Amino acid sequence: MAMFHPIDLGELFDFTLKVAIAFVLATAIGAERQYRQRSAGLRTNVLVAVGAASFVSLGMHLNGQAGASQIAAYVVSGIGFLGAGVIMKEGSHVWGLNTAATLWCSAAVGALCGVNLAAEAGVLTVAILAGNTLLRPLVNRINRTPMDEQSAEATYEVHVLTQAEHVGEVRDLLAEQLESASYPVREIEVSERSEDVTELAATLVSTAVHPEEMDAVVAALEASPLISHASWSSSTAD
């Protein structure tokens, strides 16, 4: 039994062409990401695309269109693990979602090349580049627009500082004050600022608030002798 099948020059050329197209298109995507110093840059996007093209091409070679469909399904789910590696979360702030989405789209470009849909892969590449470049001024303009806390969907947090020995009492007081103002608490995170100072951050269930009401809650909290400082903040990073 032969270890390798005889080389079919036609199939080899077809495979090389698929990988080459995926390589060129992903280079355009990756170059834009590299220019903006993203964690997944030129090489990562190229490797994702040519890998997807190779796997889908392998599936088609082994089992025709059915094999390509099966492999493509695994590529879609498998790229999620790679994308998760570039997403970082700190409190209510999340970074890397756009980079992960770009990697996911690069895999789609490669998969399209793997099933001989080079024109469609080119259209998707243009759409990815447009999303990452042409939409940027619009995003920046929206981000600079003052947010109306009464209508915007955002993540709201109330922060208080206290001494370590009063954490339990302050936690109850924080929850009580917010509940009485009809702002239920989703969770309260406790973190040590120093040996003597502990911060409690209460994340609200609400996605919209009245600033005056939140200011009143903060003022009531600061009136407590157990709390040295209180404040509230909003974020739309999610």
Rank of each mutant, 00 (worst) to 15 (best):
R33S: 07
A220T: 08
R36T: 13
L9K: 06
V48D: 02
R171Y: 14
L135S: 10
M1F: 10
R36A: 10
M60W: 04
S233L: 13
V75Q: 01
P146I: 02
G91R: 07
R43W: 04
L138I: 10
A84M: 09
A2E: 12
A201Q: 09
Q177I: 07
T27Q: 08
L117M: 14
A152Q: 14
D8H: 09
G168K: 13
E179V: 12
L173E: 09
S54T: 10
L221W: 03
A84E: 03
A127L: 15
F13Q: 12
G67R: 06
L17T: 14
E149F: 09
A220N: 11
E153P: 07
V76M: 05
G41I: 07
K18E: 08
S54H: 03
V197G: 05
G91N: 06
A175H: 11
E120K: 07
V158M: 03
I71P: 00
A220I: 03
I188N: 00
V48T: 04
A127S: 11
G64W: 03
M88R: 10
S57R: 02
R36L: 12
L221A: 02
R38T: 11
A181N: 03
C113S: 02
V218I: 08
G67Y: 05
L62Q: 11
G168P: 05
E90S: 14
S233N: 13
D8T: 08
G67I: 07
T16A: 13
L200M: 06
R38N: 11
S233H: 15
A118D: 13
L135K: 05
L178R: 01
A219D: 11
H61A: 11
L82F: 05
Q37C: 13
T198W: 08
Q65L: 15
V50R: 00
G59E: 00
A201N: 08
S92F: 10
G85V: 01
L124I: 14
K89N: 10
I227T: 05
A53R: 00
A107Q: 04
P184L: 00
L42E: 02
H93K: 15
G91M: 06
I128V: 10
Q163L: 09
V167Q: 08
E153G: 09
S224Q: 01
T27A: 15
H166G: 05
A118M: 15
P184D: 01
Q37N: 14
A201G: 04
A72C: 05
R38Q: 14
L58P: 02
H61L: 12
Q65N: 15
S151P: 04
V190Y: 04
Y74Q: 13
A230Q: 05
G80A: 03
R38Y: 11
T102P: 06
V56L: 01
L42P: 01
F55I: 07
S57A: 13
E157V: 11
F15G: 06
P146C: 03
H61D: 09
T27F: 12
M3T: 13
E212F: 13
Q65I: 11
N45S: 07
A220K: 12
S224Y: 00
S92C: 11
M214W: 01
I87P: 07
G41K: 06
V24F: 09
R186N: 08
L221R: 02
G59D: 01
S106D: 07
G114Q: 00
M60C: 06
R171D: 14
